[in-house]
Simulated assay, not measured.
Amino acid sequence: MVIFIERVGPFATIQDLGRPGWFDSGVGQAGAADRAALRLANRLVGNPEDHAGIEVLLGGLVLRADAHLTVAVTGAPAPATVDHTPVGHAGVLELDEGRVLRLGMTTAGLRSYVAVRGGIDVPKVLGSRSYDTLSGIGPEPLRAGTHLRVGRSPRTLPTVEFAPVPVPPEVLTVRARPGPRADWFTDPDELFRGSWLVSADTDRVGARLDRGEGAPLVRSIAGELPAEGMALGSVQVPPSGRPVVFLADHPITGGYPVIAVVLDADVDQVAQARPGGRLRFVPDR
């Protein structure tokens, strides 16, 4: 079975749950930016949670089935149609041969996920089918005319037609703990005061934040650090004083101080933060 990609919006890639275990070789984990959304999409179609799907930035994807396919769309809500008939979000969709699934632009959030029963069957690189935007490892980003093979369907059948998914809040609240270099700042608690504006420069590497008219974070120690290991969810602060929350394709080392680390359970929410939206940190101590 094959999926024909007829149109791609701003950006779409193949993602699974990443390639852990390669940090000592200089390779990050990558994988779905919103891991929970990919896991849910896979569960809806009866796949193991780590099967590869399509990560779609802001919608705009159009695909056609060459045979009967079972698919699900999760993550950022995007108006979806099958042959121009509206279909529900976070539900199981049956596409017969020749039928076309279209995703409009997302109404909230940033990234939608399309899973197909059997998974996207592209060659693995270092044990994963994910594309890493920082290193370029993995299958190339999708473009119109791409053909994607579908893997063998698992024996178990999906038992849920729709999954209840909460609407993203207007101001995203995420939990964070003090980082290893919190003492490099005159007032590390400033990170937790008020809210931050999500920058248009946000990507799979990190969510870049700004205060707008507010003051940036101020260091108490000048100079830079030797390269240190960077974890998913690290809140790194460059000289501008405007923090970056590291996401799926983050570098594995960095020389700017880490003021805090977002809890792993909340990183997926940061990956859905839209440019222009607001994000608030709350301490988890």
Rank of each mutant, 00 (worst) to 15 (best):
T107P: 02
R111P: 03
R111N: 03
Y113I: 03
Y113T: 06
A115K: 01
R117Y: 13
V122Y: 02
P123G: 09
K124W: 01
R129P: 02
R129H: 05
Y131R: 00
G136H: 06
I137T: 15
G138F: 01
L142T: 01
A144T: 13
A144N: 00
T146I: 00
H147C: 05
H147N: 06
L148M: 12
L148S: 08
R149D: 11
V150T: 06
V150Q: 01
G151M: 09
S153T: 07
S153K: 12
P154V: 14
P154G: 15
R155K: 11
T156E: 13
P158M: 11
P158T: 04
T159M: 08
T159R: 11
V160E: 14
V160N: 01
E161C: 01
F162V: 14
P164K: 08
V165D: 09
V165N: 10
P166T: 03
V167P: 10
V167G: 14
P169T: 09
P169D: 08
E170L: 08
E170K: 08
E170V: 12
V171C: 09
L172F: 02
T173C: 08
T173Y: 03
A176E: 06
P178I: 06
P178W: 03
G179E: 10
A182T: 13
D183A: 13
T186H: 15
D187Y: 07
D187R: 14
D187N: 15
D187L: 09
P188M: 11
P188K: 04
E190A: 15
F192H: 13
F192C: 12
F192L: 15
G194T: 04
S195C: 07
L197T: 15
L197P: 10
V198H: 02
A200Q: 12
D201P: 00
T202M: 08
D203G: 10
R204P: 06
V205C: 11
A207L: 12
A207T: 05
R208L: 10
L209K: 07
L209Q: 07
G212S: 12
A215L: 13
A215H: 13
P216C: 08
P216Q: 13
L217T: 02
R219G: 07
I221N: 05
I221G: 01
E224C: 04
L225D: 05
P226R: 12
A227M: 13
A227G: 07
E228V: 08
G229E: 15
M230R: 10
M230C: 08
M230Q: 07
A231S: 11
L232R: 10
G233S: 01
G233N: 02
S234Q: 04
V235S: 06
Q236K: 08
V237Q: 04
